[in-house]
Amino acid sequence: MANTPSEYIQHHLQNLVYGEHPEKGWILAQTPEEVAQMGFWAVHVDTMGWSVFMGLIFLGLFRLAANKATTGIPGGLQNMAEMAIEFVQGIVKDTFHGRNALVAPLALTIFVWVLLMNSLKWIPVDYIPGLASLLGLPYFKIVPTADPNGTFGIALGVFILIIFYSIKVKGLGGFTKELSFTPFNHWALIPFNLFLEIIGLLTKPLSLALRLFGNMYAGEVVFILIALLPFYLQFGLNVPWAIFHILVIPLQAFIFMVLTVVYLSAAHEDHH
């Protein structure tokens, strides 16, 4: 474990990485240097594990509710699932004007999944890494949304859907035309338009991923800093910060969902 505060912080911000080391083959990285040497061909075991675990909790709960769904008086679980669905349906109805059966379930998945992943932040920062080090794991970072891979992974999925539906609805020609002739409808300005539009297009997943990652990462860092204080001070700062996250955690999940719906709505709009 770490001794100095900076080592402690670095330790808590390091994922558990399994990857191909140039010299040692496929191993769990023991030091940040090993992680750096692994390059792209490595997996954050903790991010993947916890995100999949949270996804399974979400789908398991909702599937259970769906299996037991009655048209009569719903039980507690079904009530919760229906509340989430009605909430998402309302957002989608207000924001998305196309016809697509994918968008609402997509929005529900993003909202609940991201919410669950974010809520892992409420687990005190030393619990899980401490447990992991008892099991002999060098690092363990449990919040998948405080890992850029986690948020960019979702944003990449959304980006692929944006491109797919843009081309599907407008046609390849229509989509290219939209990129080339907006905002300035003149042939001489096509390069300029393309430059603007492609940047705008790429900004969408970037803003999605970075906003969520930035918020979660910053909150995580503050939790870690608080954990460095003497124990009699931690309580006074940790509790307000955790209570503040009652606001931050659903809000970030909500923003991610709404922006996804907005972007997909824009992808479905045909101006011609």
Partner: peptide
């Protein structure tokens, strides 16, 4: 950024598909 990105995208796609199909 590493392979986790791809893994996360795949997990996301599977979750969305499952939600759309069975939930």
């Amino acid at each position: 950024i590493n392979l986790t990105l791809i893994g996360q995208t795949i997990a996301f796609a599977i979750f969305v598909w499952f939600c759309m199909k069975f939930v």
